[in-house]
Design a protein around this nucleic acid. Structure first.
Lengths: 190, 190
DNA sequence: CTTTACATGTAATCCGTTACATGATTAG
DNA sequence: CTAATCATGTAACGGATTACATGTAAAG
């Protein structure tokens, strides 16, 4: 369902667009929250057309089909947004990796975190560049809020990675993986 | 692949466990980053056993099978963590919703954001409670870093939602959906 | 003419969710 | 005896990825 909703949102925000356009829009705008490849988008658009949520208003040069959202499509999008329900589907390979890092030796984990932090820095720079030179949306502020969110999230990941790396480096320096932070008395626990 | 890795990680961190245990561990620990139901976990464990990544060391009362990670399993987990590649699979229905909010009227969006913010507040309280009374992991600090990350992310979402709600409320009060923030001179930019 | 970008699709496979199905053990 | 919890599984369906497949138009 989410893919369908995302497409309806993009069509609302960017105006009529082809599957090709929507594929690129996905990458350049919404990929921070959701991802889809053209192989998923094209069939979905066909289904949506069959369901009356979009129409093909115009056919261009090389088989290009320009989709326009219908009233029914707008209603569907609106209904989805207004329907509550804490349907919080969330998956992040980055967070999963973060979770599993302590299964490595501290110095290994620290090194990885530093690398990750750098990647997040780069990503952050990209996002800030997009923020500076943003494309023309039909809806003026569309994407701005989400971009803001994306920047905040990326910054958070970078900071977390760096701080955690620092902690792990300290642990590595302190000697061992299993030694607790306070290295004074050895509390015997099973 | 991620599911398999997550299970290997949990078996490393928590020690031998049954599919049932792992299902609960998923919910209580890693659900902030990844989700899986028992219907996915049980078959996966069987496949992993077939692949030699885990073994059934012990069979308990009602068909209970206790899985233990093997050397091969540890190697697989380790390899996955050390193998880089910015394979950042990320999906968040919450972020998607955020992205699409500006397609609503500002006052509607604001109301939704307030609701979301409240939900995040609750979630935050839950996570902080887990943080206070955390369970005993085999690896001492396992899950701590990820929990810290989860708390930060939840707080970020709450704050973002509140701030964005404020902006939208202001926009709603200013009158219209399409009026830009600076209502003075119309800066002409292409 | 050749390369690049535009443009759309399908098929095989895998991942994930929901629903169905079963039964043992424990606590009251 | 009954209900709750423990414990494992399968089947049907839908969502997502990868690879395959095709062809047009524009730019050099």
């Amino acid at each position: 369902m989410s893919l369908r909703i995302a497409l309806l949102g993009l069509l609302t925000a960017a105006g009529p667009a082809s599957g090709y356009d929507l594929t690129k829009l996905f990458e350049s705008s919404i990929s921070n929250a959701w991802q889809a490849r053209h192989s998923q988008i094209y069939p979905e658009l066909n289904k949506m057309a069959a369901d009356g949520l979009v129409t093909v208003e115009e056919e261009g040069p090389r088989g290009r089909k320009t989709y326009t959202i219908t009233e029914e499509g707008s209603a569907e999008l609106r209904a989805w947004l207004l329907a509550k329900g804490p349907s919080r589907l969330y998956r992040s390979e980055g967070a999963l990796r973060a979770f599993l890092l302590p299964t490595l030796e501290p110095h290994e984990a620290a090194a990885l975190l530093r690398t990750e932090a750098e990647a997040y820095s780069l990503r952050l720079a990209e996002l800030e560049a997009i923020c500076a030179a943003k494309s023309a949306w039909r809806e003026p502020r569309f994407g701005e809020y989400a971009l803001d969110l994306g920047i905040r999230q990326t910054r958070l990941m970078r900071d977390w990675a760096e701080e955690t790396a620092a902690v792990m480096e300290k642990a590595a320096a302190a000697g061992e993986k299993d030694s607790p932070p306070n290295a004074e008395s050895s509390g015997g626990e099973g």
